[in-house]
């Protein structure tokens, strides 16, 4: 039972990361009906930028661990958001009226570009995050040892998701994003600048993805230029699991996938961890292609 709870908390922490990345996929899909295949690489960029800023600026030694990481997170999110908006400008906007396949090819091209650019800048080896930033302590809750890091990670992802949900549901810009996702033509006639909405989506999604990249670096300690591929696929699975285009769906799908994966790795086989995730993807595509919270995808696609 202790093992179960330990893996459950682990799954929730990892699932929070999946959810943050999945939000980027699902928001872009919601507005543009495009799978942004370069999103996983924006996640990787977040991880590397986090490392660079952490090491070069010594934020944590000046400000203390928590405040330092908070500032670091904001900086990484801002930078990756700008890269995301540039990506949209350069790779997707010129193809807005082209067949959707062109945009997909452009997305794959952007992904390859980013991956190679990271490799050329940082090298092909694993890079290691300094592991003395946060105290490696655990607290005991109901007889289960939970690393502080795990709790921080989970809390951070929940806070970001709650912020996003509030933003999308309750603010004027959020309403504009939802309106544009439902019917771009009608949204324009409400005076909504759809190009600007798309830009916001490409700022928010990559910001969350970049934060997730940095969190993976802090949690696992090492990063690699190809890590965005696997995480991207997992998060994409999570987005489908929850219902692509659906924001709460991506959050739920991410957390669920993290838990399924952690428990599957524990009770079935560690080696089959990734296979279990993708089995989930296959099953959901066969039995409920709209995802858990998705509805009527058929008339959206």
């Amino acid at each position: 039972m202790q093992l179960f709870f330990e893996q459950l908390t682990n799954g929730l922490a990892v699932g929070g990361i999946y959810a943050l990345i999945a939000l980027g996929y699902t928001m872009v899909y919601g507005v543009l009906k495009l799978i942004n295949f370069a999103h996983g690489d924006l996640f990787t960029i977040g991880a590397y930028l986090g490392l660079t800023l952490l090491v070069s600026m010594g934020l944590t030694s000046h400000l203390g661990p928590l405040a330092g990481i908070l500032v670091l997170t904001i900086m990484v999110m801002g930078l990756v958001a700008v890269i995301g908006a540039l990506l949209e400008r350069v790779a997707y906007r010129p193809l807005r009226t082209s067949p959707r396949l062109s945009a997909v090819v452009s997305a794959l091209g952007a992904s390859i570009f980013f991956q190679n650019a990271i490799m050329l800048i940082y090298g092909a080896r694993f890079r290691v995050y300094p592991h003395d930033i946060l105290p490696v302590t655990s607290i005991t809750l109901f007889g289960v040892q939970i690393p502080v890091m795990r709790i921080l990670l989970f809390t951070a992802s929940i806070v970001m998701m709650a912020g996003l949900y509030f933003f999308v549901q309750r603010t004027r810009t959020g309403t504009a994003i939802r309106a544009a996702a439902i019917d771009q033509g009608a949204a324009k006639l409400m005076g909504i600048d759809v190009n600007r909405v798309i830009m916001y989506v490409f700022l928010i999604g990559p910001a969350l993805g970049g934060a997730a990249g940095m969190m993976v670096g802090l949690y696992y300690g090492q990063i690699n230029f190809t890590m965005g591929w696997v995480y991207g696929l997992k998060a994409f699975t999570a987005a489908i699991l929850g219902g692509i285009g659906n924001i709460p769906g991506a959050m739920l799908g991410g957390l669920l996938l993290g838990v399924i994966e952690a428990l599957g790795a524990t009770y079935i086989s560690l080696a089959w961890k990734d296979a279990i995730s993708f089995l989930v993807l296959i099953l959901i595509l066969i039995f409920r292609p709209t995802g858990i919270l998705g509805e009527r995808v058929a008339d959206k696609v």
């Binding site: 933003f167 603010t171 004027r172 810009t173 959020g174 309403t175 504009a176 309106a179 949204a187 409400m190 005076g191 909504i192 916001y200």
Partner: peptide, 17 residues
């Protein structure tokens, strides 16, 4: 109908957050 009010409103992202 609130979506229709959008174009007469001024506040931006930061302000509304």
């Amino acid at each position: 109908v609130l979506a229709g009010c959008h174009c007469r409103m001024r506040s931006g992202v930061i302000g509304s957050m």
